[in-house]
Amino acid sequence: MSSSTELTEKKVFLLKSLDGVIFEVEESVAVQLEVIRELIEGDCARPFISLYNVTSEILALVIEYCKHHAETCSGGTSATIADEDLKTFDNEFMNVDENILLELCSAADYLDIKSLFELTCRTLASLIKDRTIIEVRKMFNVENDFSVVEEKAVRKEFAWAFK
């Protein structure tokens, strides 16, 4: 960032994670969290905003994501270069283990960050795709809670898709 912006003081907000860690973020990052937009715009965000559903580990990642997106979009580069840059960033950003991915998805839903939510959903979908039910259950610790009768009924319900 150039030093000529020194004079215009940037608005910052404090976000507090579930485990009590406080993050300082600029307005351009904070506004991407739709869930707190009203608080920010109504100037009700003091002294800090508590985000009870997000751990510090995940909140740090979310902030990194929003920061990169805010910087790329305001960086003055052409739209296509910015698009390419974001795509590369998103791909690398999604290179995390399944547990983090699930938490990011849940956090993006809770914080109402549409682009991150869609990105995590797409990534999770591509992980599940082409795997058997047994593999998916194993991968994500899912228990089969159907009774034999229920399982049969569901199989029948969707039989049309496999003809």
């Binding site: 009700c44 003091r46 905003i49 009870y52 839903d109 809770y110 109402d112």
Partner: peptide
Amino acid sequence: MGAGFSSLA
């Protein structure tokens, strides 16, 4: 999307 947040300290 999004539910339950607070600005309380």
